[in-house]
Design a protein around this nucleic acid. Structure first.
Length: 119
DNA sequence: ACTTTGACTATAA
DNA sequence: GTTATAGCCAAAG
């Protein structure tokens, strides 16, 4: 371990950050999926809360790949610019229409499912 | 220690 | 299909 030093109270946040970094290029996931993967299936709000500090973490967390279960860019307003999140997604080949990911289910990536499928 | 808040989700109408 | 309400858990004030 001993990769990055975090405060003890940030333990849960750290897990969120690491999972978020595992999201492949051109894929997106939901807060609930990350929360479920961490064993806190009902702490989905905390995932978003953790993302609030994401921009202070290193390496940077691809928070733009995390949307709500409806595929909406619920956190776009928390980026440097309201359009940054959408542009980042489109840059990865994901189309965004009306603050919502088009064909969200096609780009959806769930950590738990993927990890189980690996074996 | 208590209250408020929040980048959510599931259920009900 | 949408809108409204409740539950949820942890951090911040």
């Amino acid at each position: 371990m001993a990769k990055i030093k975090f405060k003890k109270s940030d333990d849960f946040f750290v897990q969120v950050y690491e999972v978020t970094r595992l999201i492949p290029y051109g894929r997106v996931t939901s807060y609930g999926a990350i929360a479920r993967f961490l064993g806190h299936s009902r702490a989905s709000r905390m995932v978003g809360y953790a993302m609030n500090n994401a921009h202070t973490q290193v390496p940077p967390v691809p928070a733009h790949r995390v949307v709500n279960r409806n595929g909406q860019l619920s956190g776009k307003h928390h980026f440097a610019t309201p359009t940054e999140m959408q542009e980042l997604l489109e840059m990865e080949g994901i189309k965004v229409k009306n603050d919502t990911v088009v064909n969200f289910h096609l780009h959806y990536w769930e950590p738990a499912t993927m990890l189980e499928d690996l074996e």
